[in-house]
Structures are given as C-alpha cells and as structure tokens.
Nucleic acid binder design. Structure first.
Lengths: 127, 127
DNA sequence: TGGGTAGCTTACTTCAAAGTGGGTACCCTC
DNA sequence: GAGGGTACCCACTTTGAAGTAAGCTACCCA
C-alpha cells in the first residue's frame, strides 16, 4: 500500500472534511458531470458543442456550470475565437493532465469492477 | 496518458452515467464519509468506536449507513464477536485493498494540490 | 426584418444525501 | 434500580447539487 490516511494527515493536515479544499476539489472532479467532462477532455481539445454531444444527457446549463467550475480550478482551459458562429475550445491544462494521470487508473478500475460490486438492479435502473 | 474515455467506453460500455454501476460505486467511495472511512481502514482493522473517533464529525447514523453500504459492495468486511459490550471489527476486503491501491494515488495528489486549486476561502469556510 | 448559429445565463423547482433526535438490546458496576 | 458502556436502528427534517424552462448575446444571411 502506498500511503495511509495517517500519513496523508501528517503531510497535508486534516483532509476531506466538509468544506476543506481537498473535499471541494474531490466534489468538483467527481461530481455527476465533472468526471465525464474531464474524461471527455482526456481525448483532446473539444468545442462546446462537441462536449455537449460527447457527454450525453447533460443540459447546457450544467455543461456551462461544470466547465466554469473546472476552469476556475485551473484544471481546464477555455479559448475563445472571434468567429461567427462563436467557437470556444476547452482543453485540459498541465495541472488537469496531471490530475487525470492519477484519476484514470481509479476510474478504469471502477469501470472494470463495478459490475461485481453493485447488483444488476443498478443496471436495470439505468435502463 | 493511460487510457481515454473512448477506450474505457470501448471496453466497459457507457460509464458514469446516472444510475449505472460505475456511477453508483463512485458515489459510494467518494461520498462525504465514504472516502474517509475507506482511508481510515487503510490503516488497518478498526472497531466501530475507533472509526467513530478517527472519522471526526461523523454521526452514528452516517457511520452505520456508510459501513452498511461499503459492506454490501464487498469493499469492507464486518466481523462481530459475541461479547458484551458488543465488539464489531471492520476491515478492508481483498477487493477493498485493490480499490485503495488505485484510489490512494489520486487522493494523495488531491491532498497535495488542493491548496493550489481551490482558493483559501474554502479553507476559511472550514474554520 | 426575420431566420439561423454557438455559447451561454437566470429564476425557480426537485429530490436524494446527510443530519437530528429519539430509540433499542444486553451486560457491567455502583 | 440507575447509571454507564458498545453498536446500532428509525422517523422525520434539512439542504445543496442538479434539473427545468425560459431567456439572452453577437453576429451573419436571404
């Protein structure tokens, strides 16, 4: 095992308690849409419309809100081009790529094992 | 970069959408108390009361609920001893340890970088 | 002038995660 | 009998993430 909670606390103090930066960041990146937007951007730079289609089910309101949050966190960059119709591109920043290097192994593990962990009912619920 | 969303989708189908097993598991392990309980158990087997003290701020209701969920997921094991007062011990299962091997690098990275990502106000809010 | 586009914002509503306050069973000590 | 302990449960309430519906901007085209 790499580290323990005790070791994390030794080096970073109290973590993941309500309202502290670590909990806030976790909530941002693991939120209903945050994880999907970050994963989509792992594939490369995308425009708003592309993200909208890639992340199925998301409303424009939630896409805007999620991107705003991740941009404020410095994990995603926004580049707007003075064109008509408007073209805005989103991409992971260096920090965002670094984050995904640590996040992808977990997300992949969950993708592979979720079927063993949660009963098929959850699957049915999603149908 | 290890994998992308496209690759995860190729191998596991639609992931992290509302209600599907992957999203449910993520919600369990990243919930307000789930992440702290799992981290606490990374330090080793613990009794109910020990967990209660280790995970500061958690109510008995939420400790019971969180442990019930993680036990149902097969990530945590519960061993009850026929003693008085009652003694119940919780530990990570093999699957739970495997999960933490993938979760700890992310959690550690977030602990180290959260201060750069989220403004100090969040810190103040936690005070 | 009315049509279109992409990319957003806002006011209000919904609902599930989490919290509160009360309770239980059993044994021990005083 | 009354107080303490551990390890939970339950009915009800709160609250914030997410959803809905409507709207907006800036520009181009016929």
């Amino acid at each position: 095992m790499t580290v323990s909670l005790a070791e994390i606390r030794r080096s970073s103090g109290e973590v993941f308690t309500e309202g502290c930066p670590t909990r806030v960041v976790l909530d941002h990146i693991m939120s209903k849409w945050g994880v999907l937007v970050l994963l989509a951007l792992t594939d490369g730079t995308q425009r708003w419309g592309e993200l909208r289609r890639e992340v199925q089910g998301i409303s424009e309101k939630m896409l805007a809100s999620t991107l705003r949050t991740l941009e404020a966190d410095g994990l995603v960059s926004r580049t707007s081009y003075p064109e008509v119709p408007p073209r805005v591109e989103y991409a992971l920043t260096d920090l965002g790529r670094e984050l995904m290097q640590h996040m992808l192994p977990l997300v992949q593990w969950v993708a592979v094992h979720a079927g063993d962990i949660v009963p098929v009912e959850a699957d049915a619920a999603a149908s």
